[in-house]
Design a binder for these strands. Structure first.
Length: 318
RNA sequence: GAUCCGGUGCGAGAGCAGUCAUCGGGCGGUCUGCAAAACCGUUUACAUGGGUGCAAAUCCCAUCCGGAUCU
């Protein structure tokens, strides 16, 4: 049995920079399959608004993993995609992770030590009535070191505090297995060769692309898609409906917003999202950035990937 | 001309004497199960000039600018 180095390519960057279509191109060039790393494309029946794209000759994974009414999180994502990536490697193809959800990508390439610690509904309910200080004090009681390690932002983030308490409680009951959990559960091991490329663009360029894309989605029938979701029983309360576009359409459907206001809010929030994505990605020094305004970016990127792809593999195509 | 109401930060909007609320926007940041989320920090404030007070966005006077009413 040959011990071939497994390769993993990641394409990331803010929204509206053309990651998906680039992914298809690269998949054809490098015998790859696409793995979407997008926290909204996992929902069925939400195609136009989340920008799903298909290509007849390229396999794509990571779409339609959940119903719009489901509570979905990185944990479910990680568990199913881990299998998908192994399977792609089995078939001797290159997995190409494409997406803008930095946290989901992180779960795959860096692992999340606590993914296997389940949600504790009863605990969460009992914690609901506590205010932020009470939550923090509770965590400090259970796990002082963890509490002390939180920064000033997370100390006031009830969502994060609740999860930290959940983990602390779990640990008190499963002390002996703690080490197992601490072990990083990631797709990558030392045999995996990772390459990350990022697409960037100036703010005006992104804004422009966003405007065009919103326009396109409207023309493709976005409003009908939302109507259909409502018809099949999806409620505005669900996490899936808090997605960009869908979220803003609520007030429009309820006639609190004019059509123009709806569109401009949508565009605005997309732009804010793109900025938040950048603050996430720019910290990751592994990413090789390419500005899509640069005429040579495509060629430069292909050169970089080729060099990486053809190095060290057994079945050189040369 | 007279009377009344009002002029607060990038926008909306409280406060009406004594840690400059709140929401939104912009900018920056955090991130190990809601991440297209949640959270944190930041942003040439109180129309102008005087006066009273230990202390004024808050009280008084004058001026300017809105808006309403009256002759």
């Amino acid at each position: 049995m040959e011990l071939q180095t497994k390769k993993l390519l990641v394409i990331c960057g803010p929204t509206a920079t053309g990651k998906t279509s680039l992914g298809f191109l690269l998949a054809k060039k490098f015998n790859g399959e696409i793995v979407s790393s997008d926290s909204r494309q996992v929902y069925k029946h939400m195609d136009i608004g989340t920008g799903k794209e298909w290509d007849d000759s390229v396999k794509i994974w990571g779409y339609d993993l959940a119903e719009p009414n489901d509570n979905y999180s990185v944990s479910e994502y990680f568990k199913s995609i881990k299998l998908v990536i192994s399977d792609i490697w089995q078939r001797n193809k290159l997995p190409i992770i494409v997406g803008g959800t930095g946290f989901y990508i992180k779960s795959l390439i860096d692992g999340i030590a606590t993914v296997d610690i389940p949600k504790n509904e009863n605990l969460r309910i009992s914690l609901e009535k506590l205010d932020i200080n009470e939550l923090f004090n509770k965590l400090a009681d259970l796990d002082g070191a963890k509490a002390a390690s939180l920064n000033s932002s997370d100390k006031r983030n009830s969502r994060r505090l609740v999860r930290a308490i959940e983990i602390a409680v779990w640990n008190t009951h499963h002390g002996t297995q703690k080490q197992i959990v601490e072990k990083r559960k990631k797709v990558l091991d030392k045999n995996v060769d990772l390459l990350m490329v990022g697409l960037s663009a100036s703010h005006p360029r992104i804004l422009n692309n966003i405007k065009d894309r919103v326009d396109k989605r409207i023309n493709e029938g976005f409003v009908l898609e939302v109507e259909n979701l409502l018809k099949i029983g999806v409620s505005w309360k669900h996490q899936s409906m808090k997605s960009l576009g869908y979220k803003e359409s609520e007030a429009f459907f309820k006639e609190g917003l004019t059509y123009e206001e709806f569109i401009s809010q949508w565009i605005n929030n997309e732009m804010k999202y793109a900025k938040r994505q950048m603050t996430w990605f720019k910290k990751d020094k592994r990413i090789n950035w390419f500005d899509i305004n640069d005429i040579n970016f495509h060629q430069n990127m292909v050169n970089l990937i080729s060099k990486w792809y053809y190095l060290d593999t057994h079945d050189k195509k040369s």
